[in-house]
Design a protein around this nucleic acid. Structure first.
Lengths: 129, 129
DNA sequence: ATTTTAATTGACGTTGACGTAAAAGTCAAC
DNA sequence: GTTGACTTTTACGTCAACGTCAATTAAAAT
């Protein structure tokens, strides 16, 4: 298997190495280390970074993202653990659905506004241009 | 017409009065004042606050929101102004569409994960509970 | 009329999410 | 085998978006 260096990921996702190390400080990433101490990232860690950045784009805090990542990450063997995970997952999914609804509403509002403006523009052009 | 006080809005939208004043500092709101200097908010100002909070939920910065609000707010009489507004509106609408796509993807990932967990849970219950 | 509640400005404090600089070690290229 | 690019930790800096006093004034309730 092949690993990524910190600057590999930094370039790919256009973030600073500082940012990636900060995510590790916060417990969001856990790269392995070479003998000399340099970080190496597996495909899975890379996928986690992708998820973090996606979450950020929606305004989730790093704490929230941390919880969401632990879904993909932790060893959930016991039944209780699994039940808690599923319950948490359902809650988060509901939040995501609400955000989608909200965004669709914003989209509708903006479209209405836009078509109004565009109509005014056409009137202008019909009489003057 | 009837006005809202700052705490009316604070309660309705569950934000602090400090937050509302801060939005005014940043030029996002412009309440009128009583003779003694107290803020009064019209329905339109209330709608603007609603928009601000919606924007925030999607991770837009206050600066971005400021631009979006000016769409609803400014006096757009000249043709040039109108054209700029429409162009900006189209750009923002595109961003919103991209965010929706992104969120739908996140939703799909979470649903896949959840159904996997739920299946594991059913296996557990089939054999043990 | 006076207690309580709510509003004002001003200023400093805080938190999250990094940026940036320094000192030292490491790896790849020539 | 040394230059130069890259990495490490440590630590202090920064900026947005408020929170939190404090002192003062105004409005509402009793």
């Amino acid at each position: 298997m092949h690993y990524f260096t910190i600057s590999d990921l930094a370039h790919e996702f256009d973030v600073s190495t500082r940012t990636i190390r900060y995510y590790e400080e916060r417990g969001l990433l856990s790269p392995i280390r070479t003998e000399s101490g340099q970080r190496l990232y597996t495909k899975k860690e890379r996928a986690k970074l992708k998820l973090i950045l996606r979450g950020k784009r929606f305004g989730f805090s790093l704490d929230e993202i941390h919880e969401m990542i632990s879904l993909f990450d932790e060893d959930r063997t016991g039944k209780k653990q699994l039940e808690k995970t599923v319950e948490y997952g359902r809650r988060k999914l509901k939040e995501v659905n609400e955000r989608i609804e909200d965004l669709l509403q914003l989209k509708a509002e903006m479209e209405a506004l836009l078509s109004d403006f565009e109509q005014r523009l056409r009137q202008w052009e019909g009489s003057d241009g």
